[in-house]
């Protein structure tokens, strides 16, 4: 069964990746040990490719700090499902090719241990058999995410 990490409202960038490391950790290898250090010490040790994160409102609020999105992508987090996101974090996630889903109903319906399935391209999440739809990104933005992130997209364009 897909592992789900569940967090609350207003998980800020300092909780996702402490500010004191922002000028000393740049690569995914350097970032990974500090992911969610001040929020959930188990995350960096236990998170695996294919895991999903559920969170409340205003996920990723605070600094322009892309390290958490780099970390989530490097781990292979399948998707983050939240009630809402702060905009710089949302943009950073697209630029790393990370899947963010805004679906308050799904977050509210999720209970610990529930079975979660999703079809990202179809805009569907199924929680214990109950289906929720989420809006798909505009095609211009999906093109960035689907290229594997913004730099890959830019390189394709520049040739």
């Amino acid at each position: 069964m897909t592992k789900v990490w569940k967090y609350g409202d207003s998980v800020n960038t300092d909780m996702l990746f402490p500010g004191k490391y922002t000028y000393t950790c740049g690569t995914a290898e350097e970032i990974l040990p500090h992911m969610l250090e001040d929020l959930d010490p188990d995350f960096a040790k236990g998170a695996k490719s294919g895991d999903i994160i559920f969170a409340g409102r205003n996920f990723g609020c605070g600094s322009s700090r892309e390290q958490p999105t780099v970390g989530f992508k490097a781990i292979g987090i399948k998707a983050i499902v939240a009630e809402g996101y702060a905009r710089i974090f949302y943009r950073a996630a697209i630029n790393q090719g990370l899947v963010l889903i805004e679906c308050p109903e799904a977050v509210q319906a999720y209970k610990e241990g529930a079975e979660v399935k999703m079809d990202i391209d179809a805009g569907e999440i199924i929680i214990d058999g109950q289906k929720f739809n989420f809006p798909l990104l505009p095609k211009e933005i999906l093109a960035i995410r689907d290229a594997g992130g913004l730099l890959a997209y830019t390189r394709n364009k520049l040739g």
Partner: peptide
């Protein structure tokens, strides 16, 4: 408005974004 590092990197090369 604020953007992330990756977008800043892309802007250095292209000067354009959405």
């Amino acid at each position: 408005t604020g953007i992330d590092r990756t977008e800043a990197a892309s802007l250095i090369l292209t000067g354009e974004t959405w």
